[in-house]
Design a protein around this nucleic acid. Structure first.
Lengths: 201, 201
DNA sequence: AAATGACCGAAACGTTATTTTGGTCAGTTA
DNA sequence: TAACTGACCAAAATAACGTTTCGGTCATTT
């Protein structure tokens, strides 16, 4: 065994530790001291990679956003119809969301104490998601698969409906399964409430 | 002139004063002392009609809910199709909302300081609205005008979409006009995003 | 009998003392 | 000597506490 691998990646250690801590305790309750301890790293070391706690947090949000975008992109198949893609992307994001508690925790924290940094982070994620959907909507329009005089608004509506079904509905009623969420999304946006019950394009 | 009308309606005076104060200053900043002063009434008198400040507030919420329901009901014409009714009811409620600042103020207050009483009041209004829509959805289904395997969820989605368009969208983007809101609602729920551009049933 | 406002205790608020925490840097380690 | 560390500092958060405000009561007035 060649003794060579030893350049411990401090940066990764820090990000991993911070990720876990933010997801577990939220932004406020995560102290740099704790991140250092969890990461097995001196506190000073963190500051050789990240200028401030805020920057560290933003990095993690950015990373998570990229990861989600990758998942969504992977589930898009340009040869398949818009609604199939929407459905699959939805499933992917939903699953990701369930695995990574960060969003949930952050939203909770935003409700309990209004931390501007957290608000910004969440807003950034929302913007990324809506942008992604908007782009897909534009492609769908070009393909003649759907109609919209305002792709951004349409994307926003899709996003809000998703949140309503996947998160908000479950706060006062029996939560919906992943399947139920994407079923409702698809049928609503495909045909609206009137029209035919089922048909495949 | 027959001198007879003189039984001053203290109750009404109080409710009017409280209504204005809640709408102007919010729940917290409205003191019983102030309501008394505005109503031209002794503080003790309020308590002969309303057991607590909370009860007074609930009464006003109840009254406002009833008023909204009346407006919505008035705009419903059983002979006309579901979507026409939805559209008209929407217009009515939107207009009502703009006239009475209470909702706006209450929502703002709920964001700034979490007052449980305010939260309950808002939740009650939401429940009333969703119930109303649900009932209309059920009728629409019976008439074969629309399809839904879960009227409550459908009603909830209609409500959330309405809020998204009328309120939330305007927080980060250029607000939509009343017309734009109901146009988008109608087209989305009628046909979804695919399907024909325009057609009248 | 209906109405009132001085009055009361509890909750909210402002202020100050104390603790925690983000961020630095002189010193240690490899 | 370059990466790393943790004692250290100022600023921000929190706790302690005296003061004010406010919901609710009730003896008195109308």
């Amino acid at each position: 065994m060649a003794a060579e691998r030893k350049p411990i990646d401090r940066r990764k250690q820090i990000i991993d530790a911070a990720s876990k801590s933010f997801a577990m305790f939220g932004y406020k309750a995560t102290t740099m001291e704790l991140v250092a301890k969890l990461g097995g790293v001196g506190k000073g070391t963190i500051y050789t990679f990240f200028a401030t706690k805020e920057v560290l947090f933003e990095e993690i949000v950015k990373q998570m956003t990229a990861e989600m975008k990758a998942i969504a992109n992977a589930s898009i198949d340009r040869k398949k119809p818009f609604f199939d893609n929407l459905n699959r992307a939805l499933h992917g994001v939903l699953q990701f969301r369930e695995q990574h508690e960060l969003f949930v925790k952050l939203n909770q924290e935003l409700w309990e104490v209004r931390t501007p940094t957290v608000q910004d982070g969440l807003a950034q994620i929302e913007r990324a998601v809506v942008n992604f959907i908007e782009q897909e909507v534009r492609i769908g329009i070009q393909q003649g698969e759907l109609r919209s005089d305002n792709p951004e608004l349409t994307a926003y509506l899709i996003f809000r409906t998703y949140i309503a079904l996947a998160v908000e509905w479950g706060r006062t009623r029996e939560p919906l399964s992943r399947e139920a969420v994407s079923d409702h999304m698809t049928t609503l946006f495909r045909y609206g409430l009137s029209g035919e019950p089922e048909a495949t394009t």
